[in-house]
Amino acid sequence: MTFDLAVRLTEILLALAFLQQCAEHIFWSGETRLLFLPRAVLSVVVLTGIFSEWALLGLTLHSFLFLHRFNGPYNGGSDRMGLLVLYCLCMAQLLQAGLPREAAFGYLGMQVVLSYFISGWVKIINPEWRSGRALRDVFSFSAYPVSENLRGFVQMPRLLWGMSWAVMGFEVVFPLALLHPVTLPVALAVAALFHLANACLFGLNRFLWFWIASYPSILWVQERLLGGG
């Protein structure tokens, strides 16, 4: 995947993720309609690919308003990933061609790897995660399960233990997927399924779209590292 193609794909996926987010704010309660309308318009401009570098700059400046309005992210990690993708894209478009642009986009790819590895590492060093107790707590009393019936997973401790180790194991070994051109797309497909499960069980739909938007960067980084980019 060439640098230009990876950047363009990321732009399209990010714009679509932003539009999904904007639609929820504009058409639901309408309280933050005025805040999200500019983001929606600028995302459409990015989608067209015409003057997209200036639209990305506009989205970046607008994100400062967004962060002030909600005193931080609205939806924690997913908003942070969305804005990280945005800032890296903006730098990758506006910096001097060559290494500075590649470094900005490569930083995003590196953060994608870290997002899985660190998330797995902090769990695997925690005895409660290794015993399956932590995931039982997530289902039994955390605010995340989308229905009361899902709390019934607590009655299946062996399944939750297996799920805990599957998640931790996958996240911790994720960086190894960079070593071969075939393993990375497979790992990203598994990761997308993981986000899909989180979206269904915990209602974290925005994580799915923003993480998928970041995937072209890591695919490009791999090609660059293996000498094909």
Binding site: F64, L67, N71, P73, M81, L83, L114, S119, A134, S142
Partner: peptide, 17 residues
């Protein structure tokens, strides 16, 4: 202070419940 955690994320999701 609002932008820094975006540029340098901690990624410590569910470190503990």
């Amino acid at each position: 202070s609002l932008i820094l955690p975006v540029l340098i994320p901690s990624w410590r999701f569910f470190k503990a419940v």
